[in-house]
């Protein structure tokens, strides 16, 4: 819930700065490795957004798969957690290259007067 509230707070502040009357859409990028459940976020969002400019906004969640690259052999593969084993050479020196994002990418605003 506090995550949903911090999203609302951030988009509300940005929209006011832009002179918006309301926010119609919010696009989030949520990596699979950050431990955020998009469903839970959707569930909380209306309650968190009540009374803010984002009250009637629709939530677009762009989920990113976790991907790792092996520092030893260079193989690329999907990962489910920050620590993974290379399926090619069994090395544990794996760099996570995507899936750790948790961003508010953009908002679509209705112009105010």
């Amino acid at each position: 819930m506090s995550i949903a509230l911090s999203i609302v707070e951030a988009v509300d502040a940005k929209a006011r700065q832009e002179g918006a009357g309301a926010i119609s859409e919010i696009t989030l990028v949520v990596g699979r490795l950050v431990g955020i459940e998009p469903e839970a976020l959707r569930f909380c969002f209306p309650a968190a957004a009540k009374g803010s400019l984002a009250e009637d906004a629709s939530l677009v969640i762009d989920e990113r798969e976790g991907r790792g690259v092996c520092s030893s052999c260079g193989a690329g593969f999907p990962v489910l957690f920050y620590l993974a084993e290379c399926p090619e050479c069994r090395s544990l020196a794996v760099q996570v290259v995507s899936g750790n994002e948790f961003l508010i990418e953009s908002i679509t605003i209705e112009e105010g007067e």
Partner: peptide
Amino acid sequence: HDHHHHHGASGTRKVEMEQDVLHE
């Protein structure tokens, strides 16, 4: 923070944010 509304929309616009949710 208060929740002060300005009504009267006259078009929509996309604003890029690229902001970490836990930024604050």
